[in-house]
Design a protein around this nucleic acid. Sequence first.
DNA 1: CTTGGGTCCTGTGCGC
DNA 2: TGCGCACAGGACCCAA
Length: 288
Amino acid sequence: MPELPEVETVRRGLEPVMAGRRLVRVIQRRPDLRWPLPERFAERLTGRRVGPLRRRSKYLLIDLDGDETLIVHLGMSGRLLIGGATLGEFHHGAAGDSAFGDGKHDHVVFDIEGGKRVVFNDARRFGAMDLWPTADLDAHRLLASLGPEPLGNAFNEDYLADRLAGRRMPIKAALLDQRIIAGLGNIYVCEALYRAGVAPKRPAGSISRPRIAALTTAIRETLMDAIAAGGSSLRDYRQADGELGYFQHAFRVYDREGRPCRTQNCRGTIRRIPQSGRSSFYCPKCQH
DNA sequence: CTTGGGTCCTGTGCGC
DNA sequence: TGCGCACAGGACCCAA
């Protein structure tokens, strides 16, 4: 589910609830998510004070006192939801009558000093958490080989041209490769390629320099627009505070198969093709 | 090294 | 209403 804009939205939602407060209680409902959780995970978190919340790519980084950081990845279906007495109960899950945090896929529960509760829910369990020394985060196996942040200075036309040069893989696959650029997923790659006028199956190394420039701009603008909209809410995804993002209403190609291209005077029809094991959406008239 | 495919897991929506 | 299948926002791991 969550790509960079959704994780950034979650970070912004959790920051005011968690930063500066202690974790008074942590409940771990199963030994593993995608991988085993650290030994004595809940114990090691209990009583710690939360520092700033940061983000790297699609990873949420929750700094704790004691110079460690809780690394969280939401995978496909992971969510971090806020509830608790001061906010009013926020119910979810199949039953709907269970207490907040007792839902079917509520795997980890954080009770925050002051009464609020943050619940990690993940039906498909592709998500992950780990606890790691803050000073060594760059060496963590999940973070070590990530490419630059698309909204940072290290990501620019020269960098992208260099990384795409000589590559025969389709540009769609290249942009999904987190080692080349970190934080994009299926939705935002489709949307950025459309905005740049680049066809998803075009070999990465065959894109002209001006098109690469357009692509870097399109990637940044797409992500910034999505963050401003609070991310995309497909199915029942929600922000941490239970609100829905609304960028899905601004999709130009994603999930629009068979519908008209939104470019003025184009009159093309959005197509869906399987690529890298997932769906690519594009306008065959606008993208080359 | 690069590239493509299978895999993990559960839920939902569709055609029949 | 039930059943089977395709598909879902990710990314690791391995074979060629």
